[in-house]
Design a protein around this nucleic acid. Structure first.
Lengths: 240, 240
DNA sequence: TGGATGTTTCGGCGCGGAACGAAGCATGTC
DNA sequence: GACATGCTTCGTTCCGCGCCGAAACATCCA
């Protein structure tokens, strides 16, 4: 009778407000304790514990015990991607946020999408990388060109270190606020990590918003400008 | 407190078994009557009516009255894409179908994804189109190259007719069974429509599976072979 | 060892909502 | 006009499950 995988259980899991809030909080990519998630979802500890048990059983989140704390985080980037997809649909369907507040504006400008950069900043960087040929799109997905490899190494990213795994080094992730793609995957994670490590970008105390320092802002603009420069060199093949 | 669009309502809507079954059935791209959907979900007419009212209110499905029948279909390809995303996650998360039966095998080989072709066949065609340069991927998404345009016209597709709209002529859609992209959008719809019109492909009586006639099978292989031929001409730029 | 903090288990309350039968409106057929 | 078919509205029942408080368990600190 039924066809394809069973959507119901996953959707029902996400469909509960408390769990949805928890998952949204985990979209920051951070590992959060059960207590923190309980507060995030506005429920008591016992309730949160029950919810987290279900999410864990469904392999949506993973848990790691550290002392008397239990840290939860999303099971993987695929879960994050699915949640982004739902956010995208929710945004289109009409469930727009009641009224975009200052925090929403910051979120739109730049935010963390599980482990990489999203929002206007993320999309701009992605566009520049594609246009300059640093990232190439093929049937198998995104791949890093030799030009792009050199450029990222010049930025200070240890490509070799993140390339070990047999997984793709980068992929596209749909951006719910911009409705365009931004860069995801190990490369994108390394890129964000670099900015955080250098103090060019800072997470807000709570939530997923990212704030750039003036140096960071300048670094981003310079990075994009460098891509544009290389783009100008290569003749752009105009398409219909 | 909450960040990003409100996932909850959409996910909760999909999370109900009856509604999930209805939506799955509508993934065939066909417009189905309330009665048909009730049978598909194994509920009585009143129950189905209530569910459909909710789906309609949430803009997940649209309704068109025709005589004493009410036809429902997915509100758009974005809804279909989100559902595919959930299927993808469900498949990875471990909710694999109990045991892949013959119908599942047929689904995996070729099926309808809302209005275009998916499954092994869809992915192969997509790969061939990208490799040959008929379809080009850019930051803005997929676009049809001049070469590709000529090729599709040669196949008998009226590109001009489907290009009027200011929407993109094609885009990528993630395939839950293959975990790769296949072609979606007006162009993909026209491609499938052509195959159906020529009798090269037939829908199974119920469900989303597609069966190719021997002529259709040959046509697909020939189409892919033609792409490969052109691919050989253009030098492939090797990347890391 | 004892007391504080973090987390889970247990038991029970209560609400939301999914389900159905029967009746009410439409539309199409004879 | 009368009857059949398709769908919706209404009223009711009932089950699931989210929620909490209290208590048990675990871990850290003193």
């Amino acid at each position: 009778m039924k066809e394809g995988p069973d959507i119901t259980s996953v959707a029902a899991l996400v469909g509960d407000p408390a769990r949805a809030n928890m998952l949204s909080a985990l979209m920051s990519g951070l590992a959060l304790t059960a207590g923190e998630l309980a507060r995030e979802a506005n429920v008591t500890a016992p309730t949160a514990s029950a919810h987290l048990a279900k999410l864990r059983e469904a392999n949506l989140v993973t848990m790691v015990v550290q002392g008397r704390h239990r840290y939860f985080k999303l099971a993987g980037s695929d879960v994050a991607a699915a949640l982004e997809g739902l956010m995208d649909l929710a945004a289109r369907i009409g469930n727009l946020r009641t009224r975009p507040g200052p925090r929403d504006a910051a979120m739109r400008a730049a935010r963390v999408c599980y482990d990489h950069l999203a929002g206007v900043a993320g999309v701009r960087i992605y566009d520049a990388l594609i246009a300059s040929g640093a990232i190439v799109v093929s049937a198998e997905g995104l791949s890093l060109s030799n030009v792009g490899r050199a450029r990222f190494i010049a930025e200070g990213i240890d490509i070799d270190a993140i390339e070990r795994k047999d997984k793709a080094i980068c992929r596209a992730c749909l951006d719910w606020s911009e409705r365009r793609s931004h860069l995801a995957g190990p490369l994108a994670k390394a890129f964000l990590d670099l900015f955080l490590a250098r103090g060019w970008a800072n997470r807000e105390a709570v939530g997923r918003a990212i704030r750039f320092s003036s140096a960071g802002q300048a670094a981003i603009e310079a990075f994009i400008a460098r891509q544009a420069l290389d783009t100008a060199k290569s003749s752009s093949r105009s398409m219909a």
